[in-house]
Design a protein around this nucleic acid. Structure first.
Lengths: 224, 224
DNA sequence: CGATCCTTTGAAGGACGTCAAGGTCTGTGG
DNA sequence: CCACAGACCTTGACGTCCTTCAAAGGATCG
């Protein structure tokens, strides 16, 4: 793996792992950059680190024996991923594009949590956030139509990027494997939303998307 | 609601909520019995209690505005449910059959957790268990075929009941809404498994099921 | 400027959903 | 004990939404 390694202390970012209090003891933080498409950790591997996206995007997925893939989540800038309570990772994580992450040793995070109730509370809070996302995603995967799924995905990305225009780092296939569809079905749904004036594209690529009508996009969500 | 109420201290069962240590302070435990089909709590309601199934079965689900339903989990004897980190329930919970639950005030559980790190650890551990289940269920809902889903459901129930024969408390419709299918598709898949000698029925009802060939049932699971 | 990857779009097929009919079980009341 | 109603389950026929297969048009990068 031709990856660039940069080891540097980043004390100001410890807070992002939920370490907010006087637990200033040396918690070694390092950075690592993964090239597009490379694996960060594999399912069932020992969980030695917890990660935070500094730049780029990550997909977490499970595979079936015949190659069917379900992406459980995309992790964007500032997101924590790879946080495990048990000793092993339950997903494979890969860089969607060239991605820089901050790492912290899982053990050191846990030892801080043992000593500091606030940190422990934050671990629970992060796990709950993940659970909530998974619960909503079960509803999407089990009961929503293809158009509703794609609309929900775009709404989620729009909300998370928080900008007027969004640059989707992931391919149609990634989106499909996140939504439990095929890439063709995703493409058709995006085309439909484009035709209906919900969104348009920027530049040459189909990954630069502008949501023109957020209210109309919301109207595709049968939740609530 | 014609429910029978029995308030009685059950100090021996506090352990089941993760309270294992010297936190013997009065944590009021009560029991409540819900008739078949009645709601225990609703989605978005304030989470005032945490529950444990003493007898019976519970379904937790989310609804879409047009009535589509996704059951996130079934809770059987000894299972904890309704545990929230935030202030509101994220699912509706209903008794599948007549069900007796033990209740504990969420606030008192949280105050114990604040004082006792072991209890706090258990809360994280329970949340992680729920997360793990949801993650596996996303894979099922997103990528498995109807036969694979039904086989996985039966394997899960078989594992959780731990007996040679299992009595499914829930209807085909419940199973369908858990698996993201219709009740007809579930019925056809069960029939297929019956024809192939994987399972058979006991008595008159189709809910008393005996798994004849666990290995063959496993062979329908493409996970791993 | 060719090679490769990604995306779109069309056409055909299939897995699951919908609709419908009939069977079984349970409970209730005569 | 039997009759009846209602809920639940099964099975068949048909429909449809999504997948599969295929082809062609960009986009990116050497």
């Amino acid at each position: 793996m031709l990856v660039r390694r940069t080891e540097q202390r980043q004390p100001t970012t410890i807070a992002d792992f939920g370490i907010t209090t006087a637990s200033k003891q040396a918690v070694s933080l390092s950075e690592f950059t993964y090239r597009k498409g490379t694996e960060i950790f594999g399912e069932r591997e020992p969980a030695e680190h917890v990660y935070q996206v500094k730049r780029g995007a990550v997909r977490s997925y499970k595979l079936l024996s015949d190659g069917r893939r379900q992406i459980g989540a995309f992790h964007l800038t500032a997101d924590i991923f790879g946080l495990e309570n048990g000793n092993h990772h339950r997903f494979t994580a890969e860089a969607v594009v060239e991605t820089t992450v901050r790492l912290i040793k899982r053990e050191s995070l846990q030892s801080v949590a043992r000593a500091d109730a606030v940190v422990a509370r934050n671990l629970l809070s992060m796990t709950t956030k993940n659970l909530e996302h998974a619960e909503n995603h079960m509803l999407l995967l089990g009961r929503k139509t293809s158009l509703e799924r794609v609309a929900a995905f775009l709404a989620e990305m729009d909300r998370r990027t928080g900008a007027d225009t969004m640059s989707l780092p992931m391919s149609r296939r990634d989106i499909a494997d996140y939504l439990g569809l095929t890439l063709e079905t995703v493409s058709r749904a995006v085309s439909k939303l484009h035709c209906e004036g919900v969104l348009t594209f920027l530049g040459n690529t189909q990954r630069e998307i502008v949501i023109l009508d957020r209210q109309k996009l919301q109207s595709f969500d049968p939740q609530n």
